[in-house]
Nucleic acid binder design. Structure first.
Lengths: 236, 236
DNA sequence: AAAATTTTATTTGTATACAAATTGTATTTT
DNA sequence: AAAATACAATTTGTATACAAATAAAATTTT
């Protein structure tokens, strides 16, 4: 079936997003204008507009006279991530518990059901996307224009970090992941009950678990070495 | 003197930003592609790219087949603003105190000097821009990719709110503004000393003052009426 | 005359053509 | 042969032309 240019444009937009989130397009990789314009049957003009938009949203970096690259994951990324995520994520879940509409809660439950599905049968990338979708909905629920931009940025790298550190063979990691799914259920309960404090508390736990998951990867053999200056608490 | 297309493009970008920050272009106003392309001697192609970028940064909203509009300031904006600003701004100043480089501190001092200048002689718009620049530098100092996007969003509306509620005739407001300048000096001291806790504390004070300034405007005759559900404390 | 429809004008979106800049390769110079 | 320069090819940026969609105006219908 043939799509109109408008659909092809959003198709390109969505495709690039998922490719970047799943690391199909690696950080630092540059986007080939001619190749993509052929693949999506679009001229370079709308293509470049999409690039700019993605740049604004943090998916790609734009360099003068050098085209677009998938945004980098530098060595400071992980540090900044775990420094910032607890705060932003806590605020988002708190507001989600406060403001969530019934239809959004249904949407969240559906996303969680799908997350559990791919947890059993899916690939690491599918898992990361499903998780991304879950948290994305909580961002909608929070409904705060000033929080959303940072939250979206965090979600991008959250997905990419997840894919990076996903090892389905590792037993402790499998356990970790199923615990994350349980936390999702608890988060849904807290939001549905409108329990802001509980939601904020769960945010803290959820990110602590994420951090542990990274630690498992960094030290897979159970060596009990403290992990440098990664923060244990949110800055006030 | 004649500028090359690259300069004209960044010229357009900068001009739109300041016009939006100073309310020269009002929220909701739509951007005329042909008019702007004439004014800046650019074709519509690079013009529209700039629009997309500004959309990503929160200055404008893009609507399908209806062009770009200056981003709105809805009735929920103020509420969301004072709900979110203390948290983000506290985190930014805390990190600024932690990470600021000497050259950035010099830059901040220069910005503050300029702020005091326009406080005496400048217009409301100039004052808002100078203040914007001051805080923008603290954002650079914080140097956290996940915090910056939300912080930048806050700065946009911070400037616009300031311009909106600026009444140079009002005496209590003049006092308020000079107090804000004093706080800037204290912020510089805290950053220079690397005192994170002090910086975070000052952020709290600074935004409390901003809130008071709005209250002065909303109730200019000193009526002591509580301002509805505007939050008094940061969410944990 | 008011409402509905058609026609026209304006605005927005895309494609192609061309200009500028960057990168890669070949040639020259030492 | 290594470095430097010059040339060619590719890639990126801009302008113009055209297509689609929306808004405005004029006509027709009731």
């Amino acid at each position: 079936m043939k799509l109109d240019s408008k659909s092809r444009k959003v198709g390109l937009y969505e495709a690039l997003k998922t490719r970047i989130l799943t690391l199909e397009m690696r950080p630092g990789e540059d986007l080939d204008e001619t190749a993509l314009s052929e693949e999506f049957s679009l001229s370079r003009t709308p293509l470049r507009e999409v690039f700019r938009q993605l740049a604004g949203e943090g998916y790609v970096d734009l360099r003068e006279n050098r085209g677009a690259r998938v945004s980098e994951m530098s060595h400071t990324t992980l540090r900044d991530f775990f420094l910032t995520a607890p705060m932003i994520y806590g605020a988002v879940l708190r507001l989600a518990a406060k403001n969530a509409r019934p239809d959004q809660i249904e949407e969240l439950k559906a996303a969680q059901a799908h997350f559990r599905d791919v947890l059993r049968a899916g690939t690491g990338a599918e898992r990361a996307l499903a998780n991304n979708r879950f948290h994305d909905i909580t961002g909608d629920m929070a409904d705060n224009v000033y929080l959303t931009p940072s939250f979206q940025r965090l979600l991008i790298d959250h997905a990419r970090i997840s894919v990076t550190f996903y090892r389905p063979t590792d037993n402790s990691m499998a356990q970790n992941v199923s615990e994350a799914a349980d936390q999702h259920d608890q988060i849904i309960d807290a939001i549905e009950a409108g329990n802001e404090n509980r939601a904020a508390e769960l945010a803290e736990d959820h990110w602590a678990l994420s951090r542990d998951q990274i630690e498992v990867f960094v030290m897979p053999h159970g060596l009990d070495i403290p992990l440098g200056d990664l923060p244990r608490k949110t800055p006030a």
